[in-house]
Design a protein around this nucleic acid. Structure first.
Lengths: 197, 197
DNA sequence: AAATTACTAGACACTGTGTTGTTTATAATG
DNA sequence: CATTATAAACAACACAGTGTCTAGTAATTT
């Protein structure tokens, strides 16, 4: 909600700023698919985006800051995509949410490849943890009176499990149908490997 | 902090090289606990290690190369720690292996913190995938005639699940006993969340 | 139309990079 | 013990990228 407001206020942003930021982001996402972020310099980003380097610095402090902001926006996108849904521990409820996220990821392949690779991994994970915590696990935790530390491990396990499979799926060019992947994930989450062996 | 030496083949390495490399690695691991790798320059590493920058370049091509090499050594360490064991899909077999890995991690906390944070995450993961594939899943795959792609997802899910929990455990200062964590992990892997809800 | 805001071009000092040539110290060998 | 390899140290190098700043121009808002 807090982040949302932030985005809203920026909606009245000068048209020029939007154009510039879009150019920067596009350039950046392209470059991130070609090189690891450590080799992507501010200079490179600006050259490809055809903007002045000082302009970059008036919006972002460095490449990593830019990455974080791109990430935030994607997380917002995910939030919107599942806004009307609730995460629960029921398989039937979870699958459609996952399907939506997977479809959203499929529509933004380049972006997700970047965010889930390299250093993006950990921080995106943390962002997603926050959504999940907000939406879901809190109530589960209370309901089942789980030990806090244990609950934390369960969340972590679930989210990294999800993300790793989605990452692989995207890296391979989303060969499987979202529904199939969603079912796989939920099965693994709720029943574990025993569902398959 | 003791970094396990680099296998048998390098045993003939000059004593001075070993000393230098150890100094570099120690400096690096320290710095990595203070800053993200993107802010750790070769210059910094060399200053703290008290060696000339050119010396660094005669051993490693950059910070990331150094990180990879440190990682390899740790993976070797894990391999040794579980050399006499076999991974299987039986819970009773898996727990002692995990306990050993956890104990090994606990003894090398600083190192593991570094490797599991930031960009270390993905690549260590991949290394561990290779061990696991070698030791285990191959036979399981054949035995159960699982679809190759499915098997790959299962491996990925298992390993990232393990790693994420271990990472959290280490970041928090290894508050739980290895045995407890090992049991948690195996339960989640084989039975999933249903084991707890 | 005027005021405001964003972008540009270019210059600045500065930090870090990667390489080279030379000298010094150490280890291995005969 | 003396010889020879070779690693480490040191200094110097051109070069690339950083972050900041100024003055001028262009676009947008009011």
């Amino acid at each position: 909600m807090h982040i949302r407001e932030f985005v809203m206020t920026r909606e009245k942003e000068d048209r020029r700023i939007k154009i510039t930021k879009r150019a920067i982001k596009e350039s950046f996402v392209e470059l991130m698919q070609e090189h690891p972020i450590s080799k992507v310099s501010v200079k490179m980003i600006c050259e490809r985006a055809d903007i002045n380097r000082s302009t970059f610095y008036s919006h972002y402090s460095d490449q990593y800051d830019l990455l974080r902001q791109v990430q935030k926006e994607v997380v917002e996108g995910i939030k919107d995509a599942i806004a009307d849904r609730r995460f629960t521990v029921e398989t039937e409820e979870t699958i459609p949410i996952l399907v939506r996220i997977l479809e959203y990821a499929r529509e933004n392949t380049g972006l997700f490849k970047v965010l889930l690779s390299e250093e993006g991994d950990t921080s995106l994970q943390e962002e997603v943890m926050l959504i999940a915590q907000d939406k879901t696990f809190d109530e589960v935790r209370v309901r089942d009176r789980l030990d806090r530390r244990l609950a934390m491990y369960l969340e972590l396990f679930s989210i990294t499990g999800c993300i790793s499979i989605i990452k692989k799926w995207i890296d391979d060019g989303t060969p499987d149908e979202p529904k199939m992947v969603a079912e796989l994930i939920t099965k693994l989450l709720f029943q574990g490997l025993s569902a398959y062996y």
